[in-house]
Structure formats: C-alpha cells, structure tokens
Amino acid sequence: MKALSHWPLEQRRRITGVFTDIDDTLTSEGAITADALRALHQLKAAGLTVIPITGRPIGWCEPFMRGEVSPPWPVDAMVAENGAVAFVPDSADFSSQNSLQRPSGMRRPLSKRYQQDASTRAHNQARMQAIAAKVCAQVPGVGLARDSAGRETDLAFDYHEFAQLGPAQVDQVLALLQAEGMHTTVSSIHIHGCFGDFNKWGGACWIVQTLLGRDLTQELDRWVFVGDSGNDQAMFQHFTHSAGVANIARFVPQLTHLPRYVTLSERGSGFAEVANALLEARQAG
C-alpha cells in the first residue's frame, strides 16, 4: 500500500464515481462521522456518483435511502448484504445518465432489487434459520448480529460490534458455515455466510448495470473504492483505484488483496481524505 499522497493527479481527475464501505470506513462506533458526512455532500455537489456497499442488512439501509435519518445521507443507491440486494430510487430511468443527481434530503419512492429470485430466497431463508441455530448452539458466546431482523439473503454473527470474540471462535463459526456450503466473508464487525457467491465486487458490477446500464469493468479508471476489512478484498482486487482507511492495518496480516493506497487517518476522517483528494484534483483541472 502506498500513501494516498502518491495517487497521481491525472488519475484522480478522471474519477466520476465512488463506492464505499460503511462500517469503520464512514462510521465510528456505529455512527457516521461529521467529516465523512460532509465529504459525501461535497462529492455529490461536485457531480460524482456515490454508492455505499456494505455487509449490513437491507432493512438497516432503508432509512438512509428514504431520508428518514437526520441528517440524511446524499447517496445514489445502497448495496447491502455484501452485494445481494440493493435499494435504488424508483420511477426513473437512469440508463442514459452519467451520474445520478439525487438531491440531498429528497424523499423518493424506493425500489428494492435482488440478485436472486423470490423462490430461491425463500428456500435459502429456511436453510439459514436452521444453520443459525446450529452455530449458536455449538460455538459458546456466539450470537446473531443485532441487525439480523433486517436481513434477507445472509447470516451475520457479531464478533466485534457488541461482542468480542477471539480468532478461534471466528474460525469455528466460519468452518461450520462453510461445511453447510455457505460462502463466507468477515467484515470489521461481523462474520457473514450466504448461499450464492455474493461479494461486493459482483454487487458493484450489478448495480452499475442496473442503475446506469453500463459495464463497470470497462470504466474502472473512472471509479474508486474505499474500504477497511476482509469483505472488501474483492473490491481491492479488481478496482484500478482503491484506498484503505488507516484502520485497515489490523486486518493486513489476514488479507490476500490490499488496497493500492492507504490514508493517514482512520474511519470517516480517512474517507474524507480520499474525498478531498478527488475534489482537489477537480479544482486543479
């Protein structure tokens, strides 16, 4: 990883879209930081497309997309459950637009989009209920994440949000999920398992096609991803431009794929560094 200051000006000037993780990238202790929120507003005001992509459940994302939180988040869509499902603004055709211009605070009907059909989701949900009970019974101290009521396509077990589990417990949960045929990832706070090879990279490609009618793989020089942990690895692997906020340091020994750049600051302040680098490049142009 190189310091963010090494990111060439000309490359930054070409960026038109930002994907970002949420937990411990925009937030600290579960709440978005003031500088990260300000950065989101500044990026949108400059005309960039901004899409958070998270392991959080789709139900958790809904109030942010509806503008029901104060202050609201100025984003164009939210991809949840590590790429399996998303909220997008409804009643509009975005396929010919270069950037979604959703005014800050504007309440708009939402459309929920899935990568799996309804019958597949229903079948998987029944399987996941049984697996969740098995994991909680076999691994002492393990419980489902508190946001699980809003989940539709995956399981999440808390290891570092409200609980504090050790590496051995995390490994045990992962082994049980994998033995059931589940795809697994580990975020900065949760252990995830799902049926279907969902990851943030696949979700990013899907949402760009869904919203903009374009192929993300053909325009990676115009996007940047910002993240901090294990479930961001697929994004670090595929994105031409990627940045880790400084708190990624605790995961580095466990990661196969690292971001190209790293910020000086942690969490929301680190995200603000990336936003400032983009805005400065535009002003310099």
Rank of each mutant, 00 (worst) to 15 (best):
L155I: 13
L255E: 08
G150T: 03
S242T: 05
T54G: 09
V262W: 00
A272T: 00
R102A: 02
Q138W: 03
Q169H: 13
T263N: 00
N82K: 02
E273R: 01
K134P: 00
C136K: 13
N276L: 11
W73L: 15
A132W: 06
R13F: 12
H241N: 15
E68L: 15
S104E: 12
M128I: 04
V79E: 01
A234Y: 08
A86I: 04
A31D: 04
R214I: 04
P259F: 06
S99G: 05
I53H: 10
G270M: 07
G213K: 06
N98G: 14
P74G: 11
Q97R: 12
S111Q: 14
F195A: 04
Q209S: 13
D117P: 07
L174S: 03
V245Y: 11
A275T: 11
Q218V: 00
H192P: 04
S95D: 01
D197V: 02
Q172D: 15
M78G: 05
G83Q: 08
G181P: 05
S96C: 06
A284V: 04
K134F: 02
A277Y: 10
R146L: 14
N231R: 05
Y159W: 14
Q115L: 12
I15P: 02
V173E: 02
V245D: 07
C205F: 00
W73R: 03
P103G: 05
E161G: 04
G143A: 15
M235Y: 09
S111M: 12
A130F: 11
L48R: 06
W223I: 00
H6I: 00
P71L: 12
G285D: 13
K134H: 14
L212R: 10
L37S: 03
S96Y: 09
A246R: 15
V88N: 05
V173M: 00
A31V: 09
E161H: 13
E29R: 14
E62H: 09
A163R: 15
Y261R: 03
T184R: 04
P167E: 13
Q209N: 12
D90Q: 00
A77W: 10
L220H: 04
P74I: 03
N276S: 11
F162G: 01
V170M: 13
V224P: 08
R12W: 08
T25L: 09
R102E: 03
V85C: 06
Q237H: 14
A84H: 02
A272L: 07
A275C: 08
H241I: 06
G47I: 10
S91L: 12
E68T: 07
G105A: 11
T120A: 14
G227R: 06
A277H: 13
S269C: 06
E280R: 12
K200H: 07
I22D: 11
P259M: 02
A3P: 14
S99W: 00
A277K: 11
D228Y: 09
A39F: 09
L220I: 01
V142Q: 04
H6L: 14
L26T: 03
A168L: 07
L9F: 03
F19E: 09
D232G: 05
T27R: 09
F87M: 08
Q138I: 02
G202N: 10
H123G: 00
S229I: 05
L155A: 09
G244A: 10
L37V: 11
F195Y: 15
T263H: 06
T25V: 08
R12N: 10
H192W: 07
L255C: 02
S96N: 09
